[in-house]
Amino acid sequence: MRLLLALLLALLPVAAQAQDGLPPAPYAYRQLDDPGLEQQARDLMDTLRCLTCQSQSIADSDAPMAGDMRHQVRTRLAAGETPEEVRGWLIARYGDYISYRPAPGATTWPLFAIPVLLLVVAVLVIARRLRGRGR
């Protein structure tokens, strides 16, 4: 089961990397000096999708483009933007696909409605199964 994941994660970025002449962007592999800001950056990067690897966040990828996006996130946060502004800026460019955190909306409501339904059904089932039995 892991085989596919392995190939997915490893092959693509490396294939691209092998041909790419430039060193990574300054903030691709460098943390922000302010630990609070770096923590915010880290939390945000964990929830942004690496577009060239398809199944990983930009915080977990060696792909050059993931590095460039980390650079983009860190420099924007350092310039005073909030994490949600950066997320919004990226969604405006790539659509909801870039964010691993679906926001409740016209296209995603079942993702939130169905768990609520599950919760209601779960409570009902438990209540029905357990009420007044065994006497």
């Binding site: 964990d46 929830t47 999708r49 966040s57 659509g95 909801d96 696909y97 870039i98 964010s99 691993y100 955190r101 679906p102 296209t107 995603t108 993702l111």
Partner: peptide
């Protein structure tokens, strides 16, 4: 016809 991502924050 549209794409979303569902990951750890969900």
């Amino acid at each position: 016809g549209f794409r979303v991502s569902v990951g750890p924050p969900y």
